[in-house]
């Protein structure tokens, strides 16, 4: 097992090296800049005319990334804010929308899971609302809420609610009958039963839903912030594209991926805590 782990790490590192090398060669080796129409090259940015590709090399990206890490929280005007700060905005929005969704989805999911009546009654609504792209809500949100920041939070709320709601309802409805029977023979009241039997029994399923939700929320926040603008990592990417700073765009892409992985890992850890072997 241990050697498998070591070998897989070695292979991962090798793949990364190969990729970086190929990237480096592809960007520096070619002389596409000189063959390019100078007018077009000018449009594409100055670097293209200096005999280098407009595409940054891994070293450029690395240096930029290092720069952002060294000084993540600067503010030099509305369009020049540190990547750390932008990330902070995005994470705050995701957290706000996600927590709101949790506050609604978990109790509602419990209700749906415990009551066959509510389950049937609410099912058509869920079926119709669930497949709607969260961004389709954006105009409606902007119109009614009239605040771009809050609208982004609403979009996160609406996209992360479904997996949590559906998984909670499913987990609660499918708690093993015999565990419920134990509580029943012990005359455990409804509320105590919900917290001491149903919640622990359904927790792994619920946390799986929460994990899916956080993934979707992080996907959606970038798109949402590109639309609403102002702050956030999505806006940062869009802004850097307008500045034609591909280096910064790639850096931001890397950071977005990294934060997404962290969020997923946190939920995975939580899932591990509540899982029980049978």
């Amino acid at each position: 097992m241990r050697s498998l782990e070591l070998r897989s790490v070695a292979v991962s590192i090798m793949l990364l090296m190969t990729f970086l090398l190929a990237w480096h060669l592809a960007v520096t080796g070619g002389s596409s800049g000189q063959k390019m129409d100078p007018e077009y090259a000018k449009l594409m940015g100055i670097t293209a005319t200096q005999g280098k590709s407009a595409m940054p090399s891994p070293v450029d990206v690395g240096l930029t990334l290092w720069g952002h890490i060294k000084d993540p929280f600067y503010v030099r005007g509305t369009n020049d804010v540190g990547l750390g700060l932008q990330l902070g905005y995005s994470i705050l929005r995701v957290a706000a929308g996600y927590l709101l969704a949790m506050a609604v989805a978990l109790p509602l999911g419990f209700l749906i899971g415990m009551s066959p009546l509510m389950s049937r009654a609410l099912d058509p609504f869920i079926q119709v609302l669930k497949p709607i792209s969260p961004l389709a809500w954006m105009p409606l949100a902007l119109y009614t809420i009239k605040d771009s920041g809050l609208s982004a939070i609403f979009v996160i709320f609406i996209c992360s609610i479904w997996p949590m709601l559906i998984n909670t309802a499913f987990g609660v409805a499918n708690v093993r009958k015999e565990w419920i029977n134990v509580a029943r023979t012990l005359e455990v009241g409804t509320l105590r039963k919900a917290f001491t039997v149903i919640l622990p029994a359904a927790a792994p399923t619920i946390v799986t839903g929460m994990r899916i939700s956080i993934g979707i929320a992080w996907l959606v926040i970038v798109a949402a912030e590109m639309l609403v603008g102002g702050t956030g990592v999505g806006y940062f990417v869009w802004n850097e594209w307008n500045n034609l700073s591909i280096t910064n765009v790639i850096t931001a892409i890397l950071v977005i991926g990294f934060v997404g992985m962290l969020l997923d890992q946190i939920l995975a850890r939580l899932g591990h805590l509540v899982t029980y072997p049978e």
């Binding site: 015999e178 565990w179 029977n181 134990v182 029943r184 023979t185 012990l186 005359e187 039997v197 622990p200 029994a201 029980y276 072997p277 049978e278």
Partner: peptide
């Protein structure tokens, strides 16, 4: 009319709470 603490059950499937 329903289960009661006066009647204890030993289940065929043990029915222990695994957590």
């Amino acid at each position: 009319e329903g289960p009661s603490l006066d009647r204890a059950v030993i289940f065929q499937s043990h029915a222990l709470l695994p957590w």
